[in-house]
Deep mutational scan, measured.
Amino acid sequence: QGDIVVALYPYDGIHPDDLSFKKGEKMKVLEEHGEWWKAKSLLTKKEGFIPSNYVAKLN
């Protein structure tokens, strides 16, 4: 089961498979690959890669 993270900063995706998000948006982490994680937005239901240093895990 994936962790839920919250965006600390907004992110505008650079690549087509990036997931753009707004500050405060919550996402479910699907896979962790070093600095880039695959996640699904709980708001938009879209999936893509996010920079892990832009988010914090919720406990």
Score class of each variant (00 low, 15 high):
Asp12Ile: 14
Gln1Ile: 15
Glu32Gly: 10
Lys23Asp: 05
Gly48Thr: 00
Ile4Lys: 03
Ala7Leu: 01
Glu47Asn: 06
Val6Gly: 02
Asn53Glu: 10
Ser41Leu: 04
Asp3Pro: 09
Ala7Cys: 04
Pro10Asp: 15
Asp12Gly: 08
Val29Ile: 15
Lys40Arg: 14
Lys26Leu: 15
Leu43His: 10
Ile50Gln: 00
Leu42Ser: 03
Glu31Leu: 08
Lys38Val: 12
Glu31His: 08
Leu43Tyr: 10
Asp12Val: 14
Ser20Arg: 07
Ser20His: 07
Ile50Val: 07
Trp36Cys: 10
Leu43Ser: 11
Lys23Pro: 06
Leu42Trp: 03
Val55His: 02
Lys28Asp: 05
Tyr11Lys: 03
Leu8Met: 08
Gly24Ser: 04
Val6Met: 07
Ala56Lys: 14
Gly24Val: 00
Asp18Gln: 15
Leu42Phe: 07
Gln1Arg: 13
Leu8Asn: 04
Tyr9Cys: 15
Lys22Thr: 10
Val6Leu: 06
Lys40Asn: 04
Lys38Asn: 05
Asn59Lys: 11
Phe49Gly: 04
Asp18Trp: 10
Phe49Ser: 05
Asn53Pro: 05
His33Pro: 05
His15Ser: 11
Lys23Thr: 09
Glu32Phe: 14
Gly48Arg: 00
Leu19Met: 06
Asn53Cys: 14
Thr44Cys: 03
Gly34Glu: 06
Thr44Met: 02
Ser20Met: 05
Ile14Ala: 10
Ile50Thr: 00
Glu25Trp: 03
Asn59Leu: 11
Lys22Ile: 13
Lys57Met: 09
Lys57Val: 11
Gly13Leu: 03
Glu25Ala: 03
Lys23Glu: 09
Tyr9Asn: 05
Trp37Ala: 07
Tyr9Asp: 04
Gly34His: 05
Phe49Trp: 15
Tyr11Thr: 01
Asn59His: 13
Gly13His: 03
Ser41Glu: 02
Leu30Glu: 04
Phe21Thr: 00
Asp17His: 12
Thr44Ser: 09
Gly13Ile: 03
Lys28Asn: 06
Leu58Ile: 13
Asp12Asn: 14
Val55Lys: 01
Asp3Met: 15
Val5Ile: 07
His15Pro: 13
Val55Trp: 02
Asp3Glu: 12
Pro16His: 08
Tyr54Val: 05
Ser20Leu: 04
Asn59Trp: 08
Val29Phe: 04
Lys22Val: 12
Leu8Arg: 05
Gly24Asn: 07
Gly24Pro: 00
Met27Leu: 11
Ile4Leu: 09
Asp17Glu: 11
Ser20Val: 07
Ala56Tyr: 12
Ser20Cys: 08
Leu58Thr: 09
His15Val: 05
Gln1Val: 15
Leu30Met: 08
Ser20Thr: 10
Ala7Ser: 04
Lys57Glu: 07
Val6Pro: 00
Glu31Met: 09
Pro16Asp: 10
Lys40Ser: 09
Leu58Arg: 04
Ala56Val: 15
Lys26Gln: 12
Tyr11His: 05
Gly2Asn: 11
Asp18Asn: 08
Trp37Phe: 15
Val29Arg: 02
Phe21Asn: 00
Ser41Ala: 04
Asp18His: 15
Val6Ala: 05
Tyr11Met: 03
Gly2Leu: 10
Lys40Phe: 11
Phe49Ile: 08
Met27Glu: 01
Ala7Val: 02
Glu25Ser: 02
Lys46Trp: 05
Leu8Ala: 03
Glu47Ile: 14
Phe21Gly: 00
Glu31Ala: 11
Gly48Leu: 01
Leu30Lys: 03
Lys57Pro: 12
Leu42Pro: 02
Gly24Thr: 02
Asp12Ala: 12
Val6Cys: 09
Ser41Pro: 00
Gly48Tyr: 02
Ile4Tyr: 08
Asp17Phe: 11
Trp37Asp: 03
Ala39Gln: 00
Ser52Ala: 14
Lys26His: 14
Gly2Glu: 10
Ala39Gly: 05
Val55Asp: 02
Lys26Val: 14
Gly13Glu: 04
Ser41Lys: 05
Thr44Val: 02
Asp17Thr: 12
Trp37Ile: 14
Ser41Trp: 00
Thr44Gly: 03
Leu58Trp: 12
Lys40Leu: 13
Ala7Gln: 00
Trp37Leu: 15
Phe49Glu: 03
Ser20Tyr: 04
Gly48Trp: 00
Gly34Ser: 06
Phe49Thr: 07
Val29Glu: 00
Gly13Ala: 14
Glu25Thr: 03
Ile50Asn: 01
Gly2His: 12
Ala39Ile: 06
Glu31Cys: 13
Tyr11Trp: 14
Lys45Arg: 11
Ser52Tyr: 08
Lys38Glu: 06
Leu8Cys: 11
Gly34Gln: 05
Thr44Pro: 00
Gly24Arg: 03
Trp36Lys: 11
Asp12Glu: 14
Gly24Asp: 06
Val6Ser: 04
Gln1Leu: 14
Pro51Leu: 05
Leu43Glu: 11
Leu42Ile: 08
Ile14Leu: 12
Phe49Asp: 04
Pro10Glu: 11
Pro16Ala: 11
Lys38Asp: 02
Thr44Trp: 02
Leu30Cys: 07
Val29Ala: 03
Ala56Leu: 11
Lys22His: 08
Pro51Tyr: 04
His15Trp: 11
Ser41Gly: 02
Pro51Asp: 04
Met27Gly: 00
Met27Ser: 00
Ser41Tyr: 02
